[in-house]
Design a binder for these strands. Sequence first.
DNA 1: CCAAAAGTGTTCCGTCTACACCCATGG
DNA 2: CCATGGGTGTAGACGGAACACTTTTGG
Lengths: 225, 225
Amino acid sequence: MTRFYSEHSRYYVSVDCIVFGFDEGKLRLLIGRRQMDPGRGEWSLYGGFVREDESLEDAAHRTLQELTGLKRMYLKQVGAFGAIDRDPGERVISVAYCALINVKDYDERLLQEHEVTWVNLDELPQLYSDHNEMVRKALTLLRRRIGREPLSFNLLPDLFTLTQLQQVYEAILGTEIDKRNFRKRVKEIDFIEKTELIDKLTSKRGAALYRFNKRMYNGNTNFKL
Amino acid sequence: MTRFYSEHSRYYVSVDCIVFGFDEGKLRLLIGRRQMDPGRGEWSLYGGFVREDESLEDAAHRTLQELTGLKRMYLKQVGAFGAIDRDPGERVISVAYCALINVKDYDERLLQEHEVTWVNLDELPQLYSDHNEMVRKALTLLRRRIGREPLSFNLLPDLFTLTQLQQVYEAILGTEIDKRNFRKRVKEIDFIEKTELIDKLTSKRGAALYRFNKRMYNGNTNFKL
DNA sequence: CCAAAAGTGTTCCGTCTACACCCATGG
DNA sequence: CCATGGGTGTAGACGGAACACTTTTGG
């Protein structure tokens, strides 16, 4: 192939994944001990270098599949990070991606293997390089979008109770929400379907299970929750 | 320097600038004929390759200074674009930046020199590579932010009339806005200052000139316009 | 004197918020 | 029988939307 741009410099490009999960009413984040130099042993987001045969987003999907075993998950680009010395080793330009997964789907064995763990978002330690900034930015992005995009279902099982759904909102927004007002709004959203099933695990009385109906959602850009 | 990541591939990284201006009530975009192969002669955003001694944002600022002569302008990252074949020449990962400038500040000579022109946003031709997508994404970003961030002043002279300000909102949002409601809201925002000066160019009666007070704005994250 | 843009308040309606009690059941 | 979480409606406050006429002055 002809070399068009040979007078310019080339850079390592990586993807770093901010993986959010939701468990026991709290937002959690998947972080691990960095397994390469420099910075070996520091807490870090999970990431990887971009290969020649994949797009940025594909690289993030591949990285996440290595980590979790999950094939296609909710994924949004957070932004590119390119400070000259952001990586203490060499210059690496990194593109951050925010992923949302249901903690139950996660393969526990892979967790061990990659030496990653879930930490509560509010107990996040200092992370390698600019990773804390990536997390902040990802969270800001979620907060801005959760009301107009059906993000929250990615953090929950297919069937969920309204209490769980509300807890996701509260965890992401960092506020308390009035139960009656929340449920009133849910009732007016047709793509959140009540099923006949009852969850008896979390309460004695049992709670109705709901489901996100993707078909009904399609094309519906104007809901508000 | 030790080479830490030598087993991985490196890539050209460029910045592409979506430069918005505002003139005669319309949003305009700065585009030019591409001056290098491949794609020479196609309409294109203005961009450049990232150098080793600059961050991504610095690269965007430098590129924009070459183009407009302006030193520090409003600049926001739109996102990284990394499809494998997005550039027909070689693999180039590009980070798009959205800039807002006041058309009057622009150096007309440089415009000639770089063979770039202003086009109305609604008459945008097909652009090189994925540049149209970058523009769409930048516009979406502006629409989402204009209400909670003082973007609009970057598109106007230091002194502006309320009609001009309203036109900026209408151009970005693509909607018509009620004059009285708009002005009512402006009155409640303390960092938009009325001056004693009168603009007599656009109307016979004359219109009061306003100014964005940066000091008053600082720290004010909760306005709404 | 008239065309053209500037400037100005009120009413209505819909939306969001605050708020407290009964229900069902497992242990 | 009681502790625990599930489930329900209403009233008042607030904010956003609709709406039309007067003012000024250059030509």
